[in-house]
Design a binder for these strands. Structure first.
Length: 909
RNA sequence: GCGGAGUUAGCUCAGCGGUAGAGCAUCUCGCUUACACCGAGGGGGUCGGGGGUUCGAAUCCCUCACUCCGCACCA
């Protein structure tokens, strides 16, 4: 064998060295090979902005597990890595950096600013890669991409032009979500909703023209706040100042928008107000004459006062209402969130929230503020900068989405694309079936500039190559200044990274990809759009399986956030305990639901890595043949223990492969954890120790044990490799295998010849017997140092032989003086039935403590209870008649065993 | 309001029709030359409440309660 393992497991001594050796071996880069089945997957491209967080660590660990598993399983495997230019996010980072120097992007202009971002990008380009490398990601770095690469930009342009030509991209005036901070439109799903429990609802009186009837009684359902009600209901001063004009009271959360009101709406069937429809009210402050309209869609007569002010330029519903009634649109808030000239000289230039205060103050002064209520509601904000969204009418580019969504729904419905965990499919359908057109233009500088060219005569040309002049009139053209939503380019990622629109060998060999692994939070942003674009432009879904993983939370189940200070940095963990422990912890926690992750949990699994290290060290101390020189195993020469551990390993192999196929990383990891620690280390290694140390058995036994030990270690390491690539490689290198690296060694598959139910049954019995003896010893207050004589009898000659052969194990592990196989146990021994075997232990006389008496009493009670349950069951005719035979037999065996135990317990009492 | 998920041992979760499980934590005993990042053992649960189906329900159905996540609405 090669040199031994270091005494202590120190991941930092070898992780980086090993990664380098993989890269040098070229194992990450597949060679196009039509003979072998392929497996391909693309990374969810992280934003170029900065560090990877724990969520990235999770996704990329799971991807790497699948990729390494597939690669070892014989697939020609490709993992495409890369990063996303992340439009707004990146632009904001660089803007902030400039702001620190007192520079705004407008100071230096578009070209210089974009240049700055590129500079910044180049400085940080390798950071993401370095972090993925630390995790052990086996991605093909020779195929790394960036969404603003020339190649990908070309794909974007092709798609845009084609969609435009097909009539699926259009430019139109529409109400969009506008971020006054970022000064750009954003799409519906970029809007996040925040609760504002202490918001207010202002009630404002609009005097009705030519109506002097007494005021309409206010709806009784509206409770006035104590401080506002009396004071504002109309003080004598105000009553004198104003004629007894009839007023309509509207309720609003945004009083500043009243400056842009162009109507007041009531429900057409509302008895209180229907007579006013068609009349006019005077808009306070502005003194504009605006109509009272009846609109059943906008107005819910039960809410507020039943009267709604209509501001078509600043509210989605009002916009629609305006279109229905042909109302003018008066824009009073500008792109910067400040009031426009339309708001009047008193307000022009004021921030919208300052204007709100002033409007309210002015209304109060004029006695038109009927009351102020507390009103909890939610407001839309821009998720990236937390600024309140301003609905705004502007000219934007849209993708007509329905023709794309329909086939994308179909492929999920018919199973061509499978989303796991399956419950997400309902969410997917729900969204896709109610989808709105996609606003794709952004008034940013960082991104793919829209390939549309305008000329002064109003012609617009959309083309793949920049036109020299307007094709229609020959005039000079200027390119559209807007850029595309960053998700537009990521939607093409699975095929653009493989060379599309060119017909490349990669595209031919690796598209469609097989699996997509990503966070559920970008199901709509990314996954759905990839399916739509993939179908539209390649005719095939971009992948067949989607595995959505949950959110990584802290150990209390809280979201990780900087402000709470509960953020776990994956790189810190890698530094502390190594990448393997982090990866294994993430894998064993990944069932698809949210993952509560704490340091103690990671610590727990780092103990497992340590265990693997030490068990391997022990094995290596006794192994003297290299894998490549070890001949085949002669199964006929094996003892039961060897056949047992091979059988268990085989079952584990089946379970791991099955679980990975179903994306149950948790189950696969659990199976390995349990097998390696509790079956291999706790039982098998303890059982072969006497043989390996030469204390028991013949030379032939020792040789067979060593051969099997080598086999089990080798296979276990290979099974574990996708989960913990570094430590398995470091150890495996000492085994002297044929392949240069464990990552290109074949992944174990289960083999029927290794199954051995009989050996498993006997070893289960041995383990249970040893446990029973240990229990009985402890119950009687003996220490492990006290040794006893055991009587045991096999039910067949073969079984008796087995116990004779393994008596040394029982003596060793259960700490006995001797084992009598056939002899009759003398009276007074402690007797028990374990797994169908009668055992008797000869304990010496010993004074029994009160605790032991109590324990026995409780044991009897418990056994009696269980016996009663089983008895009741067996006494039930319907059970005996209807239940499957096996179940009935099981119950009968259980009854017999319980009865026997009870008898012995009573004897011992 | 619509859709989805959850409620099982102190904590985090698995089990999803036939004796209540794991990891961590806790307690007891043991430094047995791979590992104290260890080994052996113990304690701890009327599986959210109620009803139903069934010989049998943590598991299937209904219902209620609470928690979480989407989406829509929010004058």
């Amino acid at each position: 064998m090669k040199e031994e393992l270091e005494k202590r497991y120190e991941p930092k001594n070898f992780e980086q060295r090993i990664y380098k050796s993989w890269e040098e071996g070229g194992y990450f880069t597949p060679i196009v090979d039509r003979e072998r089945p392929k497996f391909s997957i693309v990374i969810p491209p992280p934003n170029v902005t900065g560090r990877l967080h724990i969520g990235h660590a999770l996704v990329n660990t799971l991807i790497d597990i699948v990729v390494r598993w597939k690669r070892m399983s014989g697939f020609n495997t490709l993992w495409v890595p890369g990063t996303d230019h992340a439009g707004i996010a990146t632009q904001m980072v660089v803007e902030r950096k400039l702001a620190a120097q007192g520079i705004s992007r407008f100071d230096i202009g578009r070209e210089a600013f974009v240049e700055k971002i590129w500079e910044w990008k180049h400085q940080h380009a390798t950071e993401i890669k370095d972090q993925l490398v630390r995790l052990g990601a086996s991605a093909d770095w020779s195929r790394e991409h960036f969404t603003l690469d020339d190649q990908l930009s070309r794909a974007v342009r092709h798609v845009f032009v084609k969609l435009y030509e097909d009539g699926l991209i259009y430019r139109d005036l529409a109400m969009v979500n506008w971020c006054p901070q970022c000064r750009t439109a954003i799409s519906d799903i970029e809007v996040e909703f925040r609760d504002r429990p202490n918001a207010k609802l202002w009630h404002i009186d609009y005097p009705v023209e030519g109506e002097t009837v007494p005021r309409v009684p206010r709806s009784s359902s509206v409770e006035a706040t104590p401080e506002s009600s009396e004071e504002l209901r109309g003080t004598p001063r105000n009553s004198e100042a104003l004629p007894p004009t009839r007023r309509l009271t509207v309720a609003t959360t945004r009083p500043e928008t009243m400056l842009g009101d162009t109507a007041v709406a009531v429900h057409p069937d509302d008895e209180r107000y229907k007579d006013l429809i068609g009349k006019f009210v005077t808009l306070p402050i502005v003194n504009r004459r605006i109509p009272v309209i009846g609109d059943a869609i906008l107005v819910d007569p039960a809410f507020g006062t039943g009267v709604v002010k209509v501001t078509p330029a600043h509210d989605k519903n009002d916009y629609q209402t305006g279109l229905r009634h042909d109302l003018p649109q008066v824009q009073v808030i500008g792109e910067d969130g400040k009031m426009t000239a339309n708001a009047g000289p008193a307000f022009e230039g004021l921030d919208r929230y300052v204007a709100r205060k002033n409007v309210v103050a002015l209304l109060e002064e004029q006695g038109l503020l009927a009351k102020i209520e507390q009103h909890a509601h939610t407001v839309g904000v821009h998720g990236k900068c937390d600024t309140d969204i301003e609905p705004m009418i502007s000219r934007q580019w849209f993708v007509k989405i329905e023709p794309l969504a329909t086939p994308a729904i179909e492929v999920v419905r018919n199973g061509q694309v499978q989303i796991l965990p399956q419950s997400w499919e309902a969410t997917y359908f729900n969204w896709m079936e109610n989808i709105h057109d996609w606003t794709i233009s952004r008034q940013l500088w960082w991104g793919h500039r829209i390939p549309a060219f305008h000329c002064p005569n109003g012609h617009t040309t959309v083309s793949i190559d920049d036109p020299a002049s307007c094709p229609q009139c020959g005039a000079e053209v200027t390119q559209e200044t807007d850029v595309l939503d960053t998700w537009f380019s990521s939607a093409l990622w699975p095929f653009s990274t493989l060379g599309w629109p060119d017909k490349t060998a990669d595209l031919d060999a690796f598209y469609p990809t097989d699996t997509l692994i990503t966070g559920f939070d970008i199901l709509f942003f990314w996954v759905a759009r990839m399916i739509m674009m993939g179908l539209r432009f390649t005719g095939r879904p971009p992948f067949s399986h989607v595995f959505l993983n949950g959110l990584v939370r802290d150990e209390q189940g809280q979201k990780m956030s900087k402000s709470k200070g509960n953020v776990i940095d994956p790189l810190d963990i890698v530094d502390e305990v190594g990448a393997d422990a982090l990866r294994f912890t993430l894998a064993i926690s990944a069932s698809g639901r949210d993952i509560p992750l704490g340091k103690s949990r990671i610590q727990g699994y780092s103990a497992f890595v340590n265990k693997i290290w030490n068990a391997s060290r022990f094995a290596l101390m006794h192994l003297d043949t290299e894998l490549k020189d070890a001949g085949p195993i002669d199964r006929d020469a094996l003892r039961t223990v060897e056949r047992w551990i091979l059988s268990r390993l085989n079952a584990t192999t089946a379970e791991v492969n099955r679980s990975l196929s179903a994306y149950r990383f948790d189950e696969a990891a659990n199976a390995l954890y349990h097998f390696f620690w509790h079956e291999f280390c706790d039982w098998y290694l303890e059982m072969v120790k006497p043989v390996l140390l030469g204390k028991h058995g013949q030379d032939a036994d020792r040789a067979a044990a060593k051969r099997v030990l080598l086999e089990v270690l080798d296979r276990s390491l290979r099974l574990l490799h996708p989960f913990m690539p570094f430590v398995t490689e470091e150890i495996w290198q000492k085994l002297g295998g044929v392949e240069p690296s464990i990552m290109v060694a074949p992944y174990p598959i289960s083999e029927v010849v290794l199954e051995d139910p009989q050996a498993e049954r006997l070893l289960v019995a041995v383990q249970a017997i040893i446990t029973a003896i240990r229990n009985a010893r402890a119950e009687r207050g003996f220490t492990p140092k006290d040794r006893f004589k055991l009587y045991i009898r096999g039910n067949t000659a073969r079984e008796s032989n087995f116990f004779r052969e393994y008596a040394y194990l029982l003596i060793d592990l259960a700490r006995l003086t001797e084992v009598i196989i056939e002899g009759e146990p003398p009276a007074g021994t402690h007797q028990d039935v374990v797994e169908g075997f009668h055992i008797a232990i000869e304990f010496p006389e010993k004074v029994v403590s009160p605790e032991q008496v109590e324990r026995t009493r409780r044991e009897i009670e418990k056994t009696e209870k269980e016996l009663a349950v089983v008895g009741g069951q067996l006494g039930n005719e319907q059970f005996v008649r209807n239940a499957p035979q096996a179940v009935v037999q099981q119950a009968q065996a259980r009854q017999a065993e319980l009865a026997a135990r009870l008898e012995k317990l009573q004897q011992n009492q």
